[in-house]
Amino acid sequence: MTHTVRHMNVTHRTVVAGSGSVGSPTVRAAVVGAGFMGRVHAESVRRAGGAVVAVASSSPFTVEAAAETLGADQGYPSVEVLLSDAEIDVLHVCAPNAVHASVTRAALAAGVHVICEKPLATGEDDAAALVAAAAGKIATVPFVYRFHPMIREMRERLAAGEAGFLSTISGGYLQDWLSESTDDDWRVDAELGGPSRAFADIGSHWCDLMEFVTGDRIARLSAQTVVVHERRDTTTEDVATVHFTTVSGVVGTLLVSQVAAGRKNRLHIEVSGTETSFGFDQEDPERLWVGRRKGNLMLLRDPDTLSAPAARYSRLPAGHSQGYQDCFDAFVADTYRAIRGEECADGLPTFADGLRAVRITDAVLRSAADGGEWTEVLP
């Protein structure tokens, strides 16, 4: 199939304050997949001042329903037809993990920018190839927890040296949506979800967040994985535990579970230092715990008192809660600013970050297969 490189539409319109720029070119977006993540992406497109002009569905019989669900102008029976016929600037890839690489390759070959859900690919070679193929394009991965204002505040304070000497990093990501033996989902099937489920799905978010806030990287790790419920012939892990050391020598622990009854989406991280420690819990995102020997503080999300990088993502006044969708909105808005050639804040997660997550996941699986042997993580 021959594709034509498409350029930004010169049509202008006024957009919501804090999302895009007034008078900015309208980014024309298409979404592959109309499930939960597709709906989240579509909502963020609109809030960023973009237009959802197309959606591709896995079945011709659901094309019309997919377009209605996402509020798209047009539905297409396949990615190939969409890329051939639709005039778009960016493709949001929200399909099952196994097709991320092939759909993204096709989009890049068609000359469009890409936002691809993680994992970027289910194998390192494919992920590395996508990084190379994305040269010259805006290509991002939704590690959206980076966009919590209090995460930005933690990052600023760590960079300023407030922690003193970092001693340990700990935390976890706990969910319960697969805690019963009868729970099922396409992600359980390795043919669709890839060789890792719990770690690739949510553990990768924690690792990205840890490396983002500390500026340090996991160098070596020892991992164990556990299958709690046998659901299919190709069942992947429900639980993963990881011990790690960073490049700078800090030691850390991570617990990942999708079978932790009562925990809906608890991503929490604590960075301990000799002078000050910091703790963040995604289920309580309006606060940042600051621990000191002579007394602890609980910082509230208040744009009037936060550092400039944190206040930038504080869209609402103090006392008006922000959450997951706000993070997603900020991520898409920054991606679209980059697409339009405008200046945006640092920290936009790119395909290189997606490749990094795939490499950490690969190291976790290799270590677990070797009985928890310490395993090097590729840079």
Rank of each mutant, 00 (worst) to 15 (best):
R366M: 06
H7W: 11
V364C: 02
L91M: 12
P77W: 10
H205V: 04
S21Q: 04
H113N: 15
F147T: 02
L297R: 14
R231D: 03
A333F: 03
D176I: 01
V10E: 12
A163K: 12
Q175C: 01
E270W: 01
S57L: 02
S204H: 07
S181V: 03
F280D: 03
G295L: 11
R292C: 09
L300W: 11
M150V: 02
R155V: 08
G194Y: 11
H12N: 09
I115N: 05
P142H: 13
G354H: 07
R231I: 01
L166C: 00
P349E: 14
R39V: 00
D233R: 15
T253A: 14
R359S: 05
L178I: 07
P349K: 10
V15E: 00
W186E: 09
G23F: 14
V242Y: 07
K118L: 08
P77H: 04
G372S: 03
R217F: 11
A311V: 03
R220D: 03
G215K: 06
A30F: 13
S21A: 13
A51K: 13
L91W: 02
G193R: 08
A95I: 09
S78N: 11
G354D: 13
A363L: 07
L221Y: 08
S59G: 02
V290E: 13
P149Q: 00
S167E: 10
L192Q: 15
S314T: 15
M1Y: 08
R197H: 12
C344S: 01
S19P: 15
E275D: 14
A330I: 07
V103W: 13
T245Y: 01
L348M: 00
A110H: 10
P349I: 10
R39D: 00
I269L: 15
E162C: 04
F36S: 08
V213W: 09
M37E: 06
S321V: 14
H148Q: 06
G111T: 06
A67N: 06
V242L: 14
L166S: 09
V40W: 06
D284F: 03
W177Y: 14
I169F: 09
P25R: 14
V141K: 12
G323I: 04
T182V: 10
A51H: 09
F143S: 07
D125F: 00
F212C: 11
E162S: 07
V271Y: 05
S170W: 02
E64N: 08
F331E: 04
G33S: 07
T11W: 14
G123P: 02
C327H: 01
V112Q: 06
I269S: 05
S19E: 03
E373N: 09
L297P: 00
D73F: 10
V256G: 00
A368D: 05
S78Q: 06
P149C: 09
H268E: 04
S170M: 01
V364D: 03
A330E: 01
Y173G: 02
D304H: 12
V16G: 08
R232S: 13
I202A: 05
I339S: 06
Q224A: 10
Q282G: 04
S167I: 08
R157Q: 15
P317H: 08
Y76K: 01
L306R: 02
V227L: 02
V251K: 01
A86W: 10
N9T: 15
V81P: 01
G279Q: 10
G75F: 11
T26M: 10
S277T: 09
D85A: 15
S57I: 12
Y324E: 07
V15R: 12
F328L: 00
T14H: 12
